[in-house]
């Protein structure tokens, strides 16, 4: 936040809400958190630093994923046993990842994020 109130800040809040809505649609539709859209959008459109964008994204994912999980769960599309096993692994993994994030510079994080997306992209193009 640059601190300048008024039109500029309003624009930023509206953009944030719009980015969230777009990411929410993708999250509900494809079962992903939406961070893959929110992080680049906050960095590119709102000039957030990489670490700040990532931390903000991860927090927003909590209620967004909860709504999606509720709707999918009501339709019997959640495998609870698989969820528990995946969660056991991911609760450990997320702490390792989050602690590592705070040791890395924004430049380094941007590079890693970009490389990750390219890997996702190439995997898709080959598959």
């Amino acid at each position: 936040m640059t601190g300048a109130p008024g039109a500029d800040q309003r624009r930023q809040l509206i953009l944030l809400g719009a980015v969230g809505a777009a990411a929410g649609v993708l999250s509900g539709l494809f079962g992903v958190g939406g961070g893959i859209v929110m992080v680049p959008a906050m960095v590119l459109l709102l000039a957030f630093g990489q670490a700040r964008a990532q931390a903000t994204s991860l927090a927003a994912i909590v209620p967004i994923a909860a709504v999606g999980a509720l709707i999918f769960g009501r339709a019997d599309n959640v495998d609870l046993v698989a969820s528990l096993l995946l969660a056991a692994g991911s609760l450990l993994g997320v702490q390792v990842g989050a602690r590592l994030m705070h040791r890395l510079s924004d430049e380094r994080l941007s590079l890693i994020f970009g490389i990750f997306l390219v890997i996702v992209a190439l995997t898709m193009l080959v598959a």
Binding site: G33, G35, M38, A87, G89, S90, G93
Partner: peptide, 15 residues
């Protein structure tokens, strides 16, 4: 799979 996904979530802010 959960471990790898969690690591990415923490490191990159994605789900």
């Amino acid at each position: 799979i959960g471990l790898a996904a969690g690591f990415l979530a923490g490191l990159l802010g994605i789900g």
